[in-house]
């Protein structure tokens, strides 16, 4: 495990994640997250759908796959325009931080190719590569983030005991690792088979509630 990975996944790394709840704000409002148990199930569901897809895109990007093809693949896997906008915006924010932390031509090129932002997992993978990390590292970072973001947000949204939130994530850790392994294997297959070999696990309820959340007049989190 490289310290660069710790930095990349550190909640203090200035890449904009703190203002996003990973769907938790909508789920809390709709009564689907009410405490530690439902938070754990929410994180699990998100990890195995959104998280798996993000982890595979990140692993493929870290393995040196064509970033723009991955960006197209991310678009096709994100039917919600609210979530596409969020992903590209977070991608832009991460790229800004990444270019300061690990300057690399590949990051400059991505910024030039996608001035409005590339999808966040694609940027995450490219950043991992620039930081000398492996595809598995990138997959772990993306998979962890998919569960970590709703957990952190729920502490603020429900006043959930932060120790309980930490315990939720700790218990999920083996599944995060397993998702990262599966994502990395898929990224490897995509080298020969193309982006169609990457997972496309969908989460239709998250899509619907993301659109609903984006239409709220007032909210605490951007997504």
């Amino acid at each position: 495990m490289s310290a660069a990975l710790l930095l990349l996944t550190d909640g203090r790394f200035p890449a904009g994640g703190h203002a996003h709840s990973g769907g938790a704000e909508a789920a809390v409002a709709e009564g689907r997250i009410t405490g530690a148990a439902t938070l754990a199930e929410f994180c699990r569901g998100r990890l195995h759908t959104t998280g798996l897809v993000a982890a595979a895109l990140a692993a493929a990007a870290a393995a040196g796959a064509d970033l723009l093809a991955l960006d197209d693949a991310a678009d096709a896997r994100t039917p919600s325009p609210a979530l596409r906008t969020v992903s590209r915006r977070l991608g832009r924010q991460l790229l800004r931080a990444a270019r300061a932390a690990w300057p690399a031509a590949v990051l400059d090129q991505l910024a030039a190719d996608r001035p409005r932002g590339a999808h966040q997992p694609v940027v995450l993978g490219a950043t991992a590569r620039a930081a000398g990390l492996t595809p598995l590292d990138a997959a772990r970072a993306a998979a962890y983030e998919s569960a970590g973001s709703p957990a952190t947000a729920t502490v603020r949204l429900l006043g959930l005991d932060p120790f309980q939130a930490a315990a939720v994530l700790a218990r999920l850790a083996p599944e995060v690792d397993a998702v990262a392994d599966a994502a990395t294997a898929a990224a490897h297959r995509a080298r020969t088979e193309g982006t169609g070999a990457l997972p496309a696990a969908s989460a239709p309820l998250l899509d619907v509630s993301a659109e609903r959340h984006a239409a709220w007049p007032t909210r605490l989190f951007t997504s």
Partner: peptide
């Protein structure tokens, strides 16, 4: 199938 498929981020 995928863990969490019927949970609050799944089919609920």
């Amino acid at each position: 199938s995928a863990p969490g498929w019927d949970g609050p981020a799944g089919l609920a």
